[in-house]
């Protein structure tokens, strides 16, 4: 497999190169974070709407300003509506596993959408953790050869990518993207099941930790879901019936899976490492929608936490569950903010 590494002068250009390469008939991938992702904005939508299976790793970091660089989900959450599939990893092992699965998901005949592989900046990207890589041959076999559907360089069969799209068709193209996202829900599940066979590591759209009989459940994304496991273990040892849900797939959003797992709880806390100013956390909005559609009347509250890399430890997260149990949480809470 011949691979060419191309340097670009900016993120807008690097995404443009991925779009060009992918349309031409190559498998294209890149990586970015924070303001770099923001600088790609225009091209993110174009990659998705041209249905190009580009894969991109995003080390989630805060957006400026003030300039910060540390872990925060605001960058990827801002790209939530760009039409990219978004998968979030808890640790390095998951980031590695997700990146292998991403190509299969993006290139699936029923999907053909770009995939954003998210992992927590610094907390995961700059920490040392042990992980198990797979053999190159196993990965190559799993991912398979790239089979471009309509390569632009097939000059004997010329066709048009991304032409001017007037009101007569634009809406239908957006609808097609939505249908591809719907299909992606089942494809992510299928590819994850297949991946378990070569790796022994089983992933689903969500990961539930000690949820079965939990009265109170906290939902989070990324490395915090790892800390949550310790919090749940500690509180369980003290007799609290608590559990944790990790959202692995954020776009498409697994509404039904979320509704099912939250059904009948006494309280639900949604943790967001991003804030939609004037509203609340983006995960909270979707989780409450899922619960509402399911007719769930469990109290659900939002915790904004860890913005700009603010450290959130076991003791901070214990407070979330204790607030839930005591009924002392506001609808939107700002965990650890200094006032």
């Amino acid at each position: 497999m011949g691979t060419e590494y191309v340097c670009s002068e900016s993120e807008h250009s690097s995404m443009s190169m991925c779009i060009g390469a992918s349309a031409a008939g190559a498998r294209a991938a890149t990586a970015t974070a924070s303001a770099g992702l923001a600088y790609m904005w225009e091209m993110l939508y174009i990659a998705a709407s041209m249905r190009l299976p580009v894969v991109m790793t995003v080390a989630n970091r805060a957006l400026s300003g003030p300039i910060n660089i540390h872990c925060d989900h605001s960058d990827a959450m801002g790209a939530r509506d760009s039409g990219w599939i978004q998968i979030y990893a808890e640790n390095v092992q998951e980031a590695y596993d997700n990146s292998i699965m991403s190509f299969r998901i993006a290139e699936d005949a029923g999907v053909k959408l770009p995939v954003m592989n998210c992992l927590d900046g610094f907390i995961v990207t700059h920490a040392i953790e042990s992980m198990e890589p797979l053999d190159d041959e196993v990965v190559k076999k799993f991912v398979g050869d790239f089979k471009p559907l309509h390569p632009l360089l097939d000059v004997k069969n010329p066709h048009s990518f991304g032409p001017f799209d007037m009101p007569e068709y634009y809406y239908e193209h957006k609808y097609n993207q939505q249908m591809a996202m719907k299909k992606a829900l089942e494809v992510v599940r299928q590819v994850s099941e297949e991946y378990a066979k070569i790796s022994g590591r089983k992933y689903d759209l969500l990961e539930c930790y000690r949820c079965e009989d939990a009265d109170y459940v906290a939902i989070s994304i990324g490395s915090t879901a790892g800390t949550m496991k310790q919090v749940v273990d500690d509180l369980r040892a003290e007799g609290h019936k608590v559990g944790s849900v990790k959202v692995r797939l954020f776009r498409p959003f697994p509404f039904q899976d979320i509704a099912k797992v939250l059904d009948g709880r006494k309280g639900v806390a949604v943790l967001d490492r991003a804030l939609s100013f004037g509203a609340a956390g983006p995960l909270f909005a979707d989780v409450r929608t899922a619960m509402f559609d399911n007719g769930s009347r469990s109290p659900a509250v939002n915790y904004i936490y860890g913005l700009g890399g603010r450290d959130v430890g076991v003791e901070d997260l214990k407070r979330v569950f204790l607030d839930l149990e005591n009924g002392t949480a506001e609808t939107v809470n700002y965990l650890g903010v200094k006032l």
């Binding site: 709407s49 041209m50 559907l149 066709h159 048009s160 032409p163």
Partner: peptide, 14 residues
């Protein structure tokens, strides 16, 4: 046009 919205011939602006 395909499901991926690729136009399978060139020069359709005509």
């Amino acid at each position: 046009m395909t499901a991926e919205d690729v136009i399978m011939k060139p020069g359709t602006a005509r």
